[in-house]
Design a protein around this nucleic acid. Structure first.
Lengths: 342, 342
DNA sequence: TTTTCATCAGTAAGCGCTTTCATAGTAAAT
DNA sequence: ATTTACTATGAAAGCGCTTACTGATGAAAA
């Protein structure tokens, strides 16, 4: 009906009071006479007035927006995190601005500019470089942020949340070893990712603990995508002594492993055992259901958001760096090796 | 280094010019002497100045934010759409604010209030009720919007994008029929969803065209989730004359179908053929790979965003209602029926 | 040389709201 | 009756920026 959005001034005029009085009513200030308050509130209701968040933002320098930045939107990994963030944000007045960088620095700068321009209240960066210029700039602009699953080294004062990747890598390997496997391969993420390094370290630890040699051939880096799983499995299978178990760096990779194994006429888990990482929904949908290391992605998102909220409120964090526990979820993709080698 | 964010006024002072001049430089206005422009630009660079989008937003009443609203964040369906939206938005200066309603009207109002408060430039509503108070209110506040995959009836002047669900329903059924199936079941979404209705209509059309009776027992409504697929398949299998092919309403449902079939010791496609709907990534990851009706989700997101952008620019839409083509993607989950019934 | 125009830059207003600060009115204390 | 102390409200400033206007210049036209 009314074309323009109504302003506080209109309400004031209609209610026969001054602008500040309306503002006071809006903000539930105590110093308004009950009768006046009543009257103003009625007018507000009648006019269908909603206050402008933009004007407010300008006034007090906070936009009510949290930025969530992910490298891409091509994996359930990100979506789980996004969901976690959304879950806590939806209980607040804050909105989530989602953007992607595609790991391109051009996009990163663009994002950074937007964030700073936009007076973001805070940012959650997924898989960001642990100590980069970007982070410094954010800091310089006094924009609170927390990093999820950082890459590379982490500055000491960077709030971050991750998962116990080392423990996960070790648990998966130990499990496979306990089943009797002696040649277990690991497909990881790129070595520049902190989580990859940790998982491989966990894998090595388990092997060494069991007194088994670490065969470099069995450690295959790559992206966390299906294709990598496929390709590396093929490579692994071409080895003179192929592994009897494969520990993939992500469930998506594991799907590639499944496909490659099928293509070679090998059955899971009868011929080769497979363990994934992440525990995204697909893990339960495939057959055999994927045994995997659960990474509490949604919870990481929730935790990061909770931390950010505290930072925004100016509170201190109990701990700058929090690591959430991974856990082994046993399903159907592992079994004792068919023919024990060695 | 510098604590506060620098303002245009500071730049002006430092460069020895007036505030409007800085603004002109910032906006690439032609009426600035080259030398002055040069100088101002240098100061801007040195100061690391970024203009406040908030102030701008207040000034010109546009916030640079597009709202994307989905019912939930629990299905690849949404993520594909989100990705499409992000793809076109990332080429603009606009940011995406993502929120969920959980189909609760409380959340919907909250969202609506936020949107109106926040001076959103426009909104994309996924699976919104075709003619609801919400939409009216958006219209009243002059907020451009477009609906993706609307539910229920659609007002005539509501910009929307969907897929050719009818054609998809028909194509899937025809394909199954052409394979020799005579009892094909359809698991759909809730009947209040427009897309469900259309698909069922397409299914009926194919059946009738082939001179086959439509058995109401074979039409099973439910949610688009895995569990529904599982449950309805069990129900279907319990029928005196179970279907030899099942057309699921989503790929997720189809995963449930797979699981139920496996649980009953039935093989896909040897014993029962399965067709999905959507063609999300999982479809290619499972074995047998899922034959499905591809719904160009990401493209729908892109299209919706493109339309919204035009609406925001004040341009007219070529067409209020656009339907993107679905297509049959044949993979491995269908085969002729093992024992022809009747 | 005087008039006419571009050209460049500055003044001021205002986007919608919050927030001192000041003031009128009223009730309580002297 | 006068002072004191609130209480309820209004006037005005300002958040950071854009954008009519308004003026100075100096160059081109008369």
């Amino acid at each position: 009906m009314n074309r323009r959005r109504s302003t506080i001034a209109e309400i004031a005029a209609r209610a026969g009071v001054s602008i500040p009085t309306v503002s006071r009513v809006l903000n539930n200030r105590p110093d308004v006479a009950p009768a006046t308050r009543e009257r103003v509130e009625r007018v507000i209701r009648e006019a269908g007035y909603v206050r402008s968040r933009v004007a407010n933002a300008l006034r007090r320098g906070s936009s009510g927006i949290i930025d969530l930045v992910v490298p891409d939107l091509d994996s359930p990994y990100y979506f789980e995190i996004i969901r976690g963030v959304e879950e806590v944000l939806e209980r607040t007045e804050l909105r989530m601005a989602l953007s992607t960088t595609h790991d391109e620095s051009r996009r990163e700068r663009q994002w950074l500019r937007q964030v700073i321009e936009g007076a973001t209240d805070g940012a959650i960066l997924v898989l960001a470089q642990g100590q980069s210029d970007r982070l410094d700039e954010l800091r310089r602009h006094r924009i609170p942020f927390v990093v999820v699953d950082h890459r590379g080294e982490l500055g000491p004062d960077v709030p971050s949340v991750g998962a116990t990747n080392w423990a996960g890598g070790r648990a998966a390997t130990e499990y496979l070893l306990s089943l009797g496997h002696r040649r277990v391969a690991i497909i990881a993420g790129w070595p520049n990712l902190r989580c990859s390094q940790d998982r491989i370290a966990g894998y090595r630890a388990a092997l060494e603990e069991a007194g088994l040699p670490v065969d470099p051939e069995l450690i295959r880096p790559g992206e966390f995508r299906q294709q990598t799983g496929y390709d590396q499995t093929c490579a692994l299978l071409a080895l003179p002594q192929p592994p009897t178990a494969i520990f993939a760096g992500s469930d998506l990779q594991a799907m590639g492993v499944y496909a490659a194994l099928r293509a070679h006429g090998l059955r899971v888990p009868d011929d080769v055992s497979v363990v994934g990482f992440d525990d995204v929904p697909i893990a339960t949908m495939v057959s055999p259901a994927l045994t995997t290391i659960r990474q509490p992605l949604a919870e990481m998102g929730r935790m990061a958001t909770a931390m950010l909220l505290r930072l925004i409120a100016g509170e201190l964090l109990d701990s700058m760096r929090v690591e959430l526990a991974t856990s082994l979820v046993v399903r159907e993709s592992c079994a004792p090796p068919s023919l024990p080698d060695r």
